[in-house]
Computed example of a mutant assay.
Amino acid sequence: MDFSANHIGFVIASYALSFVCLAVLVLTTLGRDRKLRAEAERLDTQRKKARS
């Protein structure tokens, strides 16, 4: 990559924006997974109590 090119700022900004977008997607996915696992555990606990 030629760092003396006129458009290097655009290239760096594009990579930075891509990284930020991917990070947000990963964090959103992990947060959703955590929420769904907690809900599944809560429902499983309720189901076990209902059987008793």
Rank of each mutant, 00 (worst) to 15 (best):
M1D: 03
M1T: 03
M1C: 08
F3D: 05
F3W: 11
F3V: 12
A5H: 01
N6K: 08
H7W: 08
I8Y: 04
G9M: 03
F10D: 12
I12G: 05
A13N: 14
S14I: 14
Y15A: 14
L17K: 15
S18H: 06
S18T: 14
F19T: 15
F19R: 06
V20R: 14
C21L: 11
C21G: 09
L22W: 11
L22A: 10
A23D: 08
V24D: 09
L25M: 07
L25E: 13
V26L: 10
V26C: 04
T28E: 10
T28D: 05
T28R: 08
T29L: 07
L30S: 14
G31H: 01
G31W: 05
R32A: 08
R32T: 13
D33V: 00
D33Y: 05
K35I: 13
K35C: 12
K35A: 03
L36F: 14
L36H: 11
R37I: 00
R37Y: 01
A38H: 03
A38W: 11
A38D: 11
E39N: 07
E41N: 05
R42S: 06
R42C: 02
R42Q: 12
L43E: 15
D44I: 02
Q46W: 15
R47F: 12
K48W: 04
K49N: 01
A50S: 08
A50Y: 06
A50F: 09
R51P: 03
R51E: 10
